[in-house]
């Protein structure tokens, strides 16, 4: 049985013209997004089913052979694993530090507020390649960090920071924390402006310590922003390229290389293979989407 249709609202010619004007306002931005994001995404899906060199591409036999090839690609597995190591260590650490810093800066009695804020945000204004090269210089074998650690007597001989797997990954994570913590702090600071201070005061009057009031009263109110920054950071970390390329050059032996760096190598270095590269790019796309869905679900549940 069909439900009765709701009465159609009367649309006056004036209303219709207004609505058309509205669509005209949306048109340029929407067309650009459809043309330069959605359409290439569809094309990449088709490409990921094709093989061949350069422009001579044909559909693979069987169609999914690029994807089965991934399962035997040791470099693919290694770079995917590296990327997840960065994600799991760096994103939670960074977001917690950013939250603590934002909360400290939000204290109305804090002195020199804008000085602290500017200093801590400043790394976010530096380009990724730029800071990667500064860190590379500082962590060179005969560089500043080794000199300082030896001067303090903490190490006897220089550490080959970028030449060993563990330390190279460590320097990369350190760089990420340095570059992005202040950036996320600004978002939390903005969100804290919308938190009602009286709720925090009330908790304190009821005997909650500052830490408890922060955790049980402030943090829940920041949940939408925490969710947004978690999704943005996850997305960014999964697409990490500049640091892998300029700071560690993926080394040693690809053990600090990210998946996007590997994608670049397969796409544009050695003998480019667009079909196989597109399959790799789709793995990134699927992981980004899946993690975003998981985060949204988790974010919803805690309501």
């Amino acid at each position: 049985m069909a439900a009765p249709l709701p009465p159609r609202p009367k649309v006056s010619p004036l209303e219709r013209r207004k609505s058309l004007t509205g669509w005209a306002f949306l048109l340029p931005a929407s067309l650009l997004i459809l043309w330069l994001s959605f359409w290439p995404m569809i094309q990449a899906a088709i490409l990921s089913l094709q093989t061949g060199r350069g422009t001579r591409l044909s559909f693979a036999e069987p169609l999914w052979s690029n994807y089965t090839r991934l399962l035997e690609d040791e470099t693919f597995k290694l770079t995917l694993q590296n990327t997840f190591i960065y994600l799991v260590i760096q994103v939670p650490l960074m977001l917690v530090m950013a939250l603590i810093l934002a909360n400290l800066l939000n204290n109305p009695n804090l002195r020199f507020k804008s000085m602290w804020r500017t200093a801590i945000f400043l790394p976010s204004a530096v380009g990724l390649v730029s800071y990667a090269l500064v860190f590379r210089t500082m962590f060179a074998n005969d560089g500043l960090v080794n000199d300082m650690l030896m001067g303090l007597g903490l190490i006897d001989s220089p550490v080959n920071w970028l030449g060993q797997t563990g330390t190279a990954r460590f320097v990369l994570v350190l760089g990420l924390l340095w570059r992005w913590t202040g950036y996320n702090m600004i978002f939390y600071l903005a969100a804290l402006q919308t938190v009602d201070r009286s709720t925090i005061e009330a908790a304190k009057i009821d005997g909650a310590s500052s830490a408890k009031a922060f955790w049980y009263v402030t943090v829940p109110q920041l949940k939408p922003m925490i969710l947004l920054t978690a999704i943005l950071s996850t997305n960014g970390t999964l697409q990490l390229f500049d640091e892998s390329y300029a700071l560690t050059a993926g080394g040693p032996a690809n053990t600090s290389m990210t998946i996007s760096h590997y994608l670049y190598m397969v796409s544009f270095r050695n003998s480019p293979n667009f079909g196989y590269a597109s399959a790799i790019s789709y793995v990134i796309l699927i992981i980004v989407a899946a993690l975003a869905v998981v985060q949204l679900k988790v974010g919803d549940k805690r309501d």
Binding site: S37, F38, P40, L238, Q239, A277, I284
Partner: peptide, 14 residues
Amino acid sequence: GIMIPFAATMIPLF
């Protein structure tokens, strides 16, 4: 579209 990683559009864009 926010979710589309640039990596997944780079090759077709090129």
